[in-house]
Design a protein around this nucleic acid. Sequence first.
RNA 1: GGGGGAUUGGUCUAACGGUAGGACGACUGACUCUGGAUCAGUUUGUAGAGGUUCGAAUCCUUUAUCCCCUGCCA
Length: 565
Amino acid sequence: MSSDVGNSRGNFIQDIINADVAAGLNGGRVHTRFPPEPNGWLHIGHAVAICLNHGLAVANCGKFNLRFDDTNPLKEEQEFVNAIIADVKWLGADWEDRLFFASDYFALKYNFAVDLIKNGLAYVDDLSAEEIRDRRGTLTEPGQDSPFRNRTIAENLDLFARMKQGEFADGTRVLRAKIDMGSPNINMRDPVLYRIRHAHHHRTGNEWCIYPMYDYSHPIGDALEGITHSICTLEYADHRPLYDWVVHNIGPCSPQPGRPKQIEFGRVGVSHTVMSKRKLRRLVDEGFVDGWDDPRMPTIAGMRRRGYTPSSLRTFADKCGVGRKNMTAELALLEHCIREELNAEATRVMAVLRPLKLTLQNYPADQVEWLTIENNPENPFAGTRQVPFSRELCIEQEDFMEVPTKKFHRLSPGGEVRLKGAYIIKCVEIIKDAATGEVSELICTYDPETKSGGAASSRKVKGTSHWVSAAHAEPIEVRLYDTLFGCENPEAVILGAEFTQNINPHSLVTLSESVVEPYVNQVAPGERMQFLRQGYFILDPLASGGGRRVFNRIVGLKDSFIKGQ
RNA sequence: GGGGGAUUGGUCUAACGGUAGGACGACUGACUCUGGAUCAGUUUGUAGAGGUUCGAAUCCUUUAUCCCCUGCCA
């Protein structure tokens, strides 16, 4: 994975790693992990976290694990496990043979909990959830000890074993850490370690009816796997003392030397979209998009379908950097990353999205020339291709203006334009639809002396238009995607308003009359290319098939003409 | 007088007591058989106030603002 992340400077986590390695901590090892809960789809923010963790491991000759945090059987499903595995793999973060589940360690975690009890560090509490809440205190007031806090070790051991045996109903008892109900940090006020849940787990089935809580489970998973740097988001900073408490009190438990440490970083968001699972779910459930992998969604699956490459996402993650504050990157940065990559690699193809018929009066009716056009001016090694040219052509409707504005460089009555890779033409007549009055066809003449690459081809005209030979035009469907939301921060709404009110009604424009040169016949599903002057497109493998070809616009080209209007 | 975190141009990020730099965006111009790309240039910043120091984005004090925390969620 390409990455600046691992450079010895420029990122506070790498600084910490450098210091740890220099101090000989963990035997000099670096081992990170990505710990998703399989209860939803991954989004661009997760992608950044994956790249961070994996990039740090690679940059420091370390290892990277994928571990599912599946400690809550009520919310987690195998379907999400599969989707997340596919996403992480696609991104290029390689966990090799280290795919783990928090549930892999349920038995070990149980044994550690028994040890905690034996050491007087945990107790079974009979209080209800509500009673526990009432005694937890508030942000400004300390909590009160539970009346069950000082049970004997023997009684705790017995009760905890019976919790495991399934003797008690959900919610009737929990195992709590015995720390400090007076702590100013609420997480340290005797946090719940285990709760009773008679529920089916996607991996352990009905083997367990007690399940560990995140704060207890996560540090143990890290310790067992020999994780050295447990990177998580900012909101867990308050949990770090508890993380350290668990790691300290279970003692070293990995065959490898060292103990994990938690490091928090600011999550990354992107402008013009929403990121919370709840909001993304609403977009799907309420039909604003076609599903979790809709190309307008900021999910990894959506972006993959949209046409983003894994490397463009990795570049984006690198350019975002890492800090200790939550940030929102501009969508423009993301778009820059994919444009930069595709500009260097994508084959240029001529597609006419909204066709306007154009006839060359003085061009032989039965003649077809196969013109040679470069595949990518950025890359001479990309070679050339043959494109058919004939009397009847299609050009872009927007490349003709009956009454041209001052800065318009393309066809207008009596005006000239260069047809890309072909001839300079002149518009001599406009044919309008009798009913609508709209321009339906242009009659032009071509100048045979101006053939591209020819001896007299050096004459200059103001503009160049792309085109497709009508007789050779291949029909395609084009989906022009724009931002799902019209504003930078869709969540910023006045009180009582919904973020969905900021949805951009034009986020998807479908064109079914578009045409493209015959090159399309050799394009494989999933292949990306540039439609000259329009943007970068991908042949959508999911939407295409059965003779139907659907192209998604990944991102448009920058256009200083539109901006100047 | 609860705890934790943060504050560098429009956005992100670097500078670790020694010239505030980079990226993206924006704007100019050049060039162009893609109004793309490329090239050249311009623009905007250390939240405020004190202090320490020869010298402060950096250390200290203080103010302000923003984010997170009272799940048997993660």
